[in-house]
Design a protein around this nucleic acid. Structure first.
Lengths: 210, 210
DNA sequence: TCCATTGTGGCCCATACGGTCCAGAACTTG
DNA sequence: CAAGTTCTGGACCGTATGGGCCACAATGGA
């Protein structure tokens, strides 16, 4: 109530943060992404964030909490981008195309080699950290939902064979993308990966929207 | 030459090993499989192997060498099983079916949750350990080759639509299996995973045998 | 101007890590 | 039985880990 707020501010205001929280979280995300969870030390995180231990622990808690925070932010951002694409895309089917071909956009293969923070983390930690597995389930389910909506829109736009089930196809697209992510992480030739992605897409959407 | 052998055996024969090398390697493989590379300590390995430090280091070298040895053995064994299936299978297409549906064979979902040692290791270590990425490329390429042979046999057995390219389809089957492995590791409902695997298979082999 | 509060960064610690080394045991050969 | 060679398990080491702690700085309200 009101007097509580009064009490909270009875004394002086705290010293404000000197660092940009978002910038720090992105730097830490990149470090976890490049090295994996276990192979990243707190020293690494202090270095890339430029903070001292007190600040980092005070702001985000221990390594595990920090990692989960970063992972959730990453998932949320990815989902947001996907949903926005569905809103802004000219055709629903383009969303699915972009989704499956995403990794092959970078001709150097660096993006493919890096893979997906969620996929990497799930493979490394799902067995020992139930929170990570749960986060992966949540995220993949949400992605399938958005892809289903995209395919339903594609159907209403006449870009999809009516015999194709949007929900089932959305899940197949997710499976394909996860497989391509796994293959891309091996560092295989990006040209070969691109061919496989296009082939997978042709199988998923037998009526190409051109 | 001959006198070298004489020299080697001039003195007494060494004390023989007290442990079963294969049993030890399997126990260590399981530990790496369950926990991942970084999260497995040498103490863990000593415990599950039942050996002392001197024995383990003497027999296999350091942790990294031991891991690579175990990973290669795992891959070789998997490839051997796949090749033997192709030889013994009634129909070539059955090999591909088994390959894609493999994870869903265990109704408890434990197999799916555990995933594949190679896929897990590649996701965790590909960026920092080129040997692991190279091993994954080698293994996936070999798998694709066997699956291609299986599909060529299926074609000659009339179980495959002639318009389907064996090599391309084999790679698509690999992509699908890797995607299913990634999803299975999230711990998602095994029933839903099974549906997705069957759906993926139906897309891969539009002329179902049986 | 002083005070209460929180940010800040580095010092410090216990521990667990991977790896080396060694003293003794086990075994075959001469 | 003696010698030579390897196996065995544990003691030991240096290091780096994740994390706690604290003295000081900075801030805005009273």
């Amino acid at each position: 109530m009101a007097h509580t707020v009064q009490n909270l501010y009875r004394a002086g205001m705290p010293r404000p943060r000197e660092f940009d929280e978002n910038r720090v979280l992105l730097a830490i995300r990149d470090e976890f992404w490049d090295k994996g969870y276990a192979a990243t030390s707190m020293d690494d995180l202090l270095r890339v964030s430029g903070l001292g231990k007190g600040s980092l622990y005070g702001a985000f808690g221990d390594k595990r909490s920090l990692f989960l925070r970063v992972l959730r932010d990453y998932d949320d951002a990815n989902l947001l981008v996907l949903r926005e694409r569905l809103v802004s895309a000219a055709r629903g089917i383009d969303v699915v195309r972009e989704f499956v071909l995403g990794l092959t956009g970078d001709p150097t293969g660096a993006v493919a080699r890096r893979g997906c923070l969620l996929a990497n983390s799930n493979a490394e930690l799902a067995a020992s950290t139930p929170d990570v597995a749960a986060e992966a389930r949540r995220s993949y389910d949400a992605i399938a939902t958005v892809l289903t909506a995209a395919l339903e829109r594609a159907r209403s736009e006449g870009a999809l064979d009516p015999g194709i089930d949007p929900s089932e196809t959305a899940r197949a697209a997710l499976v394909a993308q996860l497989g391509l992510i796994a293959l891309g992480r091996t560092g295989m030739d990006i040209g070969a990966l691109t061919v496989m992605a296009q082939s997978a897409l042709a199988r998923l959407l037998p009526t190409p929207a051109q």
